[in-house]
């Protein structure tokens, strides 16, 4: 099938950038969206043009490297699916697709569809961990954790750090990302010792990185490839208030 692509091209953070249009004449319905970009790039290389740069790695929806806005939706039309697992069978012959990078001032564009998400690493560095050095751990079964609790913690721990939540948010907020780690650790006994300090430091870091605040649009939850719930954001707010009041 033939697919028309309108792709954002930008040489670097200071370049203004523009859309360019391409046609892939023989896309296969079984190929993934990133494989469609691969085919386009092979075409461009043979035409003597620069291929479209995009981040990708595992192509199984778990590493969080890939992420582009497809027709205005972060990761594209299929729910709970990173764009590496979006398959072309959801499109038909002759369709046009618009492809853009994540757009947020806290995610500067590096080139084309590649953005700098290192702000996420700094948010985790501000407190998204349990301070337990190697060798200091008690026996793994020393603290029983009810299955329902660990399951809920897991739902938050499943975050892949792709940044779709930021791209989808009208405020470019990193609340869902930050809340996911705060909620994961707040639910578990291991996270209690640093619970109050963690939420304060991570939220402060999120603000310092230039992400906006949450105004409950829930666009983040809608595009999250792991289906992380915005209930986490409520948890983050509650945790933050508790922590600051008790200080």
């Amino acid at each position: 099938m033939q697919i028309k692509l309108k792709v954002w091209r930008q040489k670097g953070p200071r370049d203004t950038g523009r859309f360019e249009e391409y046609v892939v004449p023989d896309a296969n319905p079984h190929m993934s969206f990133l494989e469609l970009l691969d085919v386009l790039n092979e075409q461009l290389i043979m035409e003597g043009k620069d291929p479209v740069e995009f981040d990708h790695d595992c192509r199984e929806g778990i590493c969080g490297s890939c992420g582009v806005v497809v027709d205005g939706v972060a990761h594209g039309p299929q729910q709970r699916t990173a764009c590496c697992q979006l398959h072309m069978r959801h499109y038909k012959d002759g369709d046009s697709i618009v492809v853009e990078p994540w757009r947020a001032s806290a995610f500067p564009i590096i080139r084309d569809l590649v953005v700098d998400r290192s702000a996420f690493d700094r948010i985790i560095g501000a407190g998204g961990y349990v301070s337990v050095s190697t060798g200091a751990a008690p026996d793994a079964n020393a603290i029983p954790i009810p299955k329902v609790v660990v399951d809920e913690a897991f739902d938050y721990a499943a975050c892949i750090g792709c940044g779709a939540c930021v791209a989808a948010c009208p405020n470019a907020s990193a609340s869902l990302f930050t809340a996911a780690k705060i909620s994961h650790l707040a639910l578990l006994p291991q996270g209690q010792a640093e619970r109050a300090q963690r939420v304060v430091n991570m939220v402060d870091q999120m603000e310092a990185e230039g992400f906006g605040d949450c105004s409950n649009h829930a666009e983040c939850e809608a595009v999250c490839p792991k289906g992380i719930s915005i209930k986490g954001i409520a948890t983050m707010r509650r945790e933050y208030i508790k922590a600051t009041l008790s200080q």
């Binding site: 961990y129 349990v130 337990v132 190697t134 060798g135 200091a136 751990a137 008690p138 026996d139 793994a140 079964n141 603290i143 029983p144 954790i145 009810p146 299955k147 660990v150 399951d151 913690a153 897991f154 721990a157 994961h184 650790l185 578990l188 291991q190 996270g191």
Partner: peptide
């Protein structure tokens, strides 16, 4: 091998558990 599991649990890795709370 056993120390690894201890370490990871202490870090907050949400391993699967039974209803009684054990791994």
């Amino acid at each position: 091998s056993n120390s690894i599991i201890d370490q990871c649990v202490a870090q907050g890795v949400p391993f699967a558990r039974e209803y009684g709370g054990m791994l």
